[in-house]
Every structure is written in C-alpha cells, then in structure tokens.
C-alpha cells in the first residue's frame, strides 16, 4: 500500500496546485482583460493621455465627434454635453465641456465612465484632459461645466468617419443615510 501512496501524494499535490493556480488565473483574467481592452479598444477603456502629435495632422480630413451623456440608475444630476457634436481633423486639439447640475439638496459625488464607439477608434482618441479622470463633487444646486480636451490621432483608420464618445455618470456618493435605511428596512432593497 505504501508503494501506492507515494505516486498518489505527488499527483494530488500537483493537481491541487493546478486547481489553486487556476483559481488565481481566474483573477488574473481581470488585468489580462484590461490589457486586452487597451490593445483593442474594446469597451472604450482606453486612458490615452499621451503627448499630442501635431506632426501627422491632416487638416484636409474631417472626423465627426459625437458626445453623449448618460445617467446611470438613480443618478439625479442633470448631465449633458455642451455641444452634441464637433467636426475636427486628426491632430487638432479641441476643447469642449459637459455640463452637470446637482438638483438635490445635498452634496453628491459623481464619476463619469467613458466609452467610445466604434471600439476600434478608442485607441486613437487621446484625452489630454478629462473630467472623467477624477471624481466630481457637486454641492446642492451647483452647476458646473466640466472640461474635456482631446485629440484624434492621425493614425485613425480611414474608414472611421464618426467617433462617438459617451460618458455615463455614476453616483458614487458614500452611502450614509440610505444604507442604514436599507439594512433597517429590507423591503427597500431592490430586486
């Protein structure tokens, strides 16, 4: 029997190690996916803050950039782009803004999450300065124009003529009152 147990033990150790590795691999998929998104521009998760390349600017070409503002779930802020679209040429630095207003009676914090369509254009949209880089606090009743400075890379594939940049605004105000209410009154939990 002891002859039998020795190969069993090494095998079990290897298999358990394999299982543990795969558990780790599950978590590794998260950064891997991020890298994958960076490369492909999938889901617009590109954080391009790189230098501006005016060298390849092509003033003859025209690209339409659309701006879309979306509120997530119960985010009550009024949120809209200053201009719904701009026409730029690749390499041209442009500034625009999104306007947010907090109509509630308390200070809230918002976080804008960018997304680009088509996704293959994401890596060619450089945000020089963007309000989505930071959390945005707004006092009760406060309105603010949040700036966005961007450049379209001259390497943008020829067939892309329209780039849509959307921002979804999430409410990330730390839960204080409402959370207590949720735990006290389970029926306040949503489905």
């Amino acid at each position: 029997m002891s002859q039998q147990q020795q190969p069993n033990r090494t095998l079990i150790i290897r298999l358990i190690a394999g299982a543990v590795l795969m558990f780790g691999f599950g978590f590794l998929l998260v950064p891997l996916y991020d890298v994958f998104c960076q490369v492909t521009g999938l889901n617009g998760k590109v954080l391009n803050t790189g230098p501006v390349q005016d060298v390849n600017a092509d003033p003859q070409r025209r690209v339409r950039v659309q701006f879309i503002a979306v509120n997530n779930e119960s985010m009550p802020w009024r949120f809209r782009p200053e201009q719904s679209q701009l026409t730029v040429y690749p390499g041209q630095m442009k500034q625009t803004a999104f306007i947010a207003m907090n109509p509630t009676s308390s200070t809230m914090i918002g976080q804008a999450v960018p997304s680009v369509a088509p996704s293959e254009a994401a890596e060619f949209l450089h945000k020089v300065n963007c309000f989505c880089f930071e959390q945005q606090p707004l006092d009760a009743g406060e309105q603010r124009a949040m700036p966005l400075v961007f450049v379209i890379d001259a390497a943008l594939p020829e067939h892309i003529k329209t780039v849509t940049l959307s921002y979804t605004l999430f409410d990330i105000t730390p839960d204080t009152g409402p959370v207590a209410a949720v735990t006290e009154e389970p029926e306040r939990r949503n489905l």
Binding site: A19, V20, M22, G24, G26, F27, V30, V113, T168, D171
Partner: peptide, 25 residues
C-alpha cells in the same frame, strides 16, 4: 471549476467589500 470559484468570489467582493470588478462606476 476554480475559475467559477474565482468569479463568484469576485461577485462576493463586489457585493460586500466595495470592490469594482464588475461595476463600471
């Protein structure tokens, strides 16, 4: 199966420990 365990663990952390594996915010 460990990958499934991983994904439900991430869910658990998102729900109870304020991580944001699957939360765009």
């Amino acid at each position: 199966m460990p990958v499934l365990a991983g994904v439900v663990t991430m869910m658990l952390m998102d729900i109870h420990f304020d991580t944001s594996f699957f939360n765009a915010a």
